[in-house]
Nucleic acid binder design. Sequence first.
DNA 1: ACCCGTGTTCGCTG
DNA 2: TCAGCGAACACGGG
Length: 289
Amino acid sequence: MPELPEVEIAARNLRRWGGGRLIRAVWADPRAKRVFRPWATAAVARSLTGARIGAVRRIGKNLLVTLGRGAAKSARQVGLWSHLGMTGKWVLRQPGDPRPSHARMELTLDDESRLLYLDPRMFGRLRWVPDAHFDEIPELAALGPDPLVDGIEVRALADRLSRVRRPIKVALLDQSVLAGVGNIQASEALFRARIDPRRPASSLSRAEVGRLRKGILASIAFTLDALSDSDSEDGDIHYVEEDRTRNPFLVYDRAGEACPRSRGAGAPAIVRIVQAGRATFFCPDCQRT
DNA sequence: ACCCGTGTTCGCTG
DNA sequence: TCAGCGAACACGGG
């Protein structure tokens, strides 16, 4: 599920499955009004039918699909903005496969394969963007730099954080600070950078922001690797080995376990605290400063 | 039965 | 004016 690395995998899958293909038919769950708001499900279905899938971009946790309509020359474009929320997921199904539960939209392509958006909790969003003018969407304009797309500029990040009083862990969840960092990546990055998640963001030195940059990039790269291994041809999660792959993270969801940095007798334990209503995992021993 | 949740938004408060 | 916080959204899994 979806932080930057999961959404990046989804983008790669969508390119592989749908790139260049024509959408032959569209089904949208009429009960999922919430997901399509403010557009009516019927209107979205109508606007996507007959369109050809073009570029798939990812910005933070957002997927931006550009589709072309009509002849290539005078092609009018439409955009599809997909945010996976907490439980959203794109999968591929072949003709005859049953429609999975919690399907909210189904795109039948010109090779009869089917692209499905699943979302049990319906916290995700699917929005039609007229003329693919993604740059006119305020929510996207408000996003900070994407660590993979734009990189992380230490000076700019330090400058931004210097004006934030909230704990650094909470600040990292703010999508206008960095686009794509979520609850797991924030804990993991701070552990890698050896920074106490409770520190006021404004108290970080330039050197610490430098470590944080490295921690974020390393954690994202590591998670992408782990996901590539477990992601399968049709987007279903496939665990290679039942237990080890389940939680590949260093500290996330590991409360009470020994700190991976100092194994052995008397090793300190990972602690779980709650910040701004969200779980944070860290090692009180090596994330001291 | 009950608690928890990889995300975001809204409304209230100081 | 606005940062900060809890609740709400809706459902499955442990």
